[in-house]
């Protein structure tokens, strides 16, 4: 069970309090109608799935309820950092 630092609560809490939210920094287009089918497919489905540093979203679902971002190594599962939604990619 991972131990995750919530940047809002400023506490490390067990994984069962959190819900994983998929890859981070994939912004929904302001006007999806301008997207081609290929662009829309990429937004919906294409993910980087790296071996190593992964930017991802978590929600402190059973805590403050906030979404935040994290950088985690997908080989060791070690968190490098967590940061608030809206902050620049780390």
């Amino acid at each position: 069970m991972l131990l995750i630092h919530c940047p809002y609560c400023e506490e490390a809490r067990p994984e069962v309090e959190f819900a994983y939210g998929g890859e981070a920094h994939i912004a929904r287009p302001v006007d999806p109608s301008t997207y081609s089918d290929e662009q829309w497919e990429e937004f919906l489905y294409i993910r980087s799935n790296p071996r190593g540093r992964h930017h991802e979203r978590w929600r402190h679902a059973h805590g403050c309820g906030r979404f935040f971002n994290a950088v985690r190594d997908t080989v060791t599962d070690v968190f490098e950092t967590t940061y608030k939604a809206g902050e620049a990619r780390k």
């Binding site: 991972l2 819900a19 994983y20 799935n49 071996r51 992964h54 991802e56 985690r72 997908t74 599962d77």
Partner: peptide, 13 residues
Amino acid sequence: DQYTSYSQRGAFH
């Protein structure tokens, strides 16, 4: 597990 990983290791819960 809920998150992506290549660790071949999952959580006890």
